Amino acid sequence: MTDPASLPYRPCAGVMLINRDGRVFVGQRIDNTLEAWQMPQGGIDPGEDARTAAVRELGEETGITADKVTLIAEAPDELLYDLPPELIGKVWKGKYRGQRQRWFLFRFEGEDSDIRIDTAHPEFRAWRWAEPADLPRLIVPFKRALYEDVLTAFADHLN
């Protein structure tokens, strides 16, 4: 078996989407039976910049189009997380030990009816608006520290 420490991190972009009430979009993954909620995020394609990837992933996962969001801030640093040992080798064809993510804070300018998780390749089975402070307890445990870092990065822009 490959030593996890020798594997690279998968380049990724994440979106914290806040509505007019300062609440954050979270979705329940379709491929997970845990009662866990996460913000939209996904891989950065070769040659794609992180902000473009973030807007693309947001659209692919929520149906929200670029004209319905306004960029508020970008986290100053890449944020990392490691997969738990039992998942290394099972996800992403075993090529990565975790993810290195660029995070973006967007304001949602649309209506709830603009959110369509029944996309061509659905990733979420349910969605809701959550209080920012609740994010670390809503996410799977191995991403809890990452979500705390995202909250810290955007603290000046949240209620």
Rank of each mutant, 00 (worst) to 15 (best):
P76D: 14
W92Q: 07
A66I: 02
E60N: 09
V24F: 09
I44F: 04
E35C: 06
I18V: 15
Q38P: 01
T52K: 11
K68V: 09
L71P: 11
G59A: 04
G94P: 09
P85F: 07
V26L: 13
G47F: 11
R102C: 09
A50S: 14
Y81W: 15
L80R: 14
E61N: 11
E74L: 05
I64F: 09
L71T: 10
A73T: 05
N19V: 06
L80Q: 14
D67V: 03
D77R: 04
P84C: 08
L80D: 08
T33V: 10
L83A: 10
K95D: 12
N32R: 15
K95C: 10
D21F: 14
T70H: 05
Q28I: 12
T65N: 00
K90W: 07
A50C: 00
I30P: 01
Y96E: 02
K68F: 08
Q38C: 03
A73P: 06
L17Y: 09
G14I: 04
L79Q: 11
G22V: 10
Q28P: 13
I88F: 06
R20I: 00
K93V: 11
G22I: 07
P84S: 05
R20Q: 13
D45Q: 12
G43V: 02
V91K: 10
T65F: 01
K90D: 07
G59D: 02
P85R: 11
Q99L: 05
D82K: 02
L79F: 05
A36Q: 11
R51Y: 05
R20K: 13
T70I: 02
L87Y: 10
E35I: 10
Y96F: 13
E61M: 14
G47I: 03
M39C: 15
N32D: 15
V15L: 00
D45W: 11
Q38I: 10
I88N: 05
I72E: 02
L34D: 13
L58T: 12
E78T: 10
T70R: 14
R51N: 00
V15Y: 04
W37I: 12
A54G: 06
L79D: 04
I18C: 08
V91T: 13
K95H: 15
E61V: 13
A75V: 13
I88W: 01
E61R: 13
G27F: 14
D21N: 13
Y96N: 02
M16C: 13
A75K: 04
E57H: 11
E48M: 14
A73F: 12
N32Q: 14
I30W: 03
A53Q: 05
N19P: 15
G14M: 11
E74Q: 13
L17Q: 12
D67R: 00
V15W: 00
R97N: 06
T70N: 09
L79T: 03
N19G: 10
D21P: 05
V24S: 06
V69H: 02
R97Q: 07
R20Y: 02
I88A: 03
G43A: 08
P85D: 15
I30E: 05
T70F: 02
L80A: 07
